[in-house]
Design a protein around this nucleic acid. Structure first.
Lengths: 119, 119
DNA sequence: TAACTGTATTAACTCAATTAGTACAGTTGC
DNA sequence: GCAACTGTACTAATTGAGTTAATACAGTTA
């Protein structure tokens, strides 16, 4: 279900978060679907349950999933996941715009880059 | 000359790099100017010289400064610093565009956000 | 009741970041 | 020449976030 890239030196819980977020946003994990339990995923990835728990806790704080003690963790309903992601990305875009402006590049010029430099 | 924010948990050498890069890009440190020596800056910030050396080494690899054994470290001439920064920022923008596209937001829509959502 | 859930807590382990100490070669001014 | 600077390189010790490990407790479900 999830693959962990060991050539990437980022923390494991970050990689687990990224993988799950991608699965959710791509629709591979539809709204309301139950995620593997903390223990299941830990065994599946040969990772400590505490590390998975941390990933789940942060995904819940960010609005991607909802965890219910005794029942399980579920993909957030009502477009919560996409809304959470859009908020994150807009924040990133705003921060990047500030960095560009520090080098004298306006938002309009950034917009031009986006349209012209299609790789 | 440089202030280090201790409420920021990023590595010290990263903070030193960011501070110097900002001083260079803002023009506070003009092209060709000599930076404080590794040992000077280490004493000034109460940081180990090796940590400063790492920041300088990476700034040189990225094209912001030029280090000459025996003489010192100098702000890169010929617009090297700005060129280096622009390359980094364009790379960031491209990566962010890919993230937006994964959520179904096109580059054109990103461009619109930049023009409209002026904070 | 048994076997699942999420959650919490404490202690040990790992490894990158950092510190510390030392050394060497090139530059500069006396 | 030489003293006092430079950048650079290397090894060893220390620190702290990330991770593992083990255990416990309360809610859910068949």
């Amino acid at each position: 279900m999830i693959q962990i890239n060991y050539h990437d030196s980022r923390p494991i819980y970050e990689k687990v978060k990224d993988s799950l977020r991608q699965l959710i946003l791509s629709g591979a994990l539809p709204e309301g679907d139950r995620l593997p339990s903390v223990r299941e995923l830990a065994v599946s990835l040969t990772i400590n349950p505490n590390t998975i728990q941390r990933a789940y806790r942060e995904l819940e704080q960010e609005g991607y999933i909802v965890s219910v003690p005794g029942k399980g963790s579920f993909v957030a309903r009502g477009g919560g996941a996409r809304a959470a992601r859009m908020a994150e990305l807009k924040e990133k875009l705003s921060a990047l715009a500030a960095e560009f402006e520090a080098v004298g590049v306006s938002r309009a010029e950034m917009a031009d880059m986006l349209k012209e430099e299609k790789p």
